[in-house]
Design a binder for these strands. Structure first.
Length: 157
DNA sequence: ATGGTTGCAAGGCAA
């Protein structure tokens, strides 16, 4: 299985490139971030025509995530992470496809640091970590994919 | 120290 992730920075501004890439790369599963479009403006038809089923969690102007599956419909298992009912950002969507649970994540950028936005990022980070433990305990195949906005170590810059 | 880019959407924000 070929699983890909792509921060599109605007699904409608990038849809031609996305379709060309789907045709060339033929990924089985695609996690998209930064749709920057509300649900009703997701280019469902174009993506269907390219041979992909899709689920999406959009938002006007910012954020927004989607999962595409080649020749099938992703079965949505969750939208939004547990732990904060007031979270209005569309940053997580999850589906079951071919016996795998696929989580598509777009973690806050958090720049600049230090600043309130960075604090927000660190707080937000707690929920995917807690939820990942829940998923792990299910002992089913899971792929958590997306734009984590994180580096493996401090470069000291 | 400043200017440098892009997308959304209609001015400024987020990245």
């Amino acid at each position: 299985m070929k699983l890909a992730t792509y921060n599109v920075n605007g699904i409608n501004g990038r849809v031609d490139v996305l379709l060309r890439w789907l045709e060339e790369a033929l990924p089985d599963l695609v996690c998209l971030q930064e749709l920057k479009a509300p649900d009703e403006k997701f280019p469902r038809r174009e993506i269907e025509r390219a041979g992909y089923g899709a689920i999406w969690h959009g938002q006007k102007s910012w954020n927004g995530v989607a999962i595409l599956a080649r020749d099938q419909e992703p079965r949505e298992t969750r939208r939004g992470l547990p732990g904060d009912p007031d979270d209005s950002h569309s940053r997580y969507i999850e589906a079951a496809i071919d016996g795998i649970v696929v989580g598509c994540l777009y973690l806050p950028n958090g720049n600049p640091a230090p600043a309130p936005k960075f604090d927000y990022k660190l707080r937000w980070f707690e929920r995917p970590q807690a939820y990942a433990k829940e998923l792990f305990e299910l002992e089913v195949p899971v792929a958590l994919v997306g734009d984590f906005n994180v580096m493996p170590k401090n470069l000291g810059v």
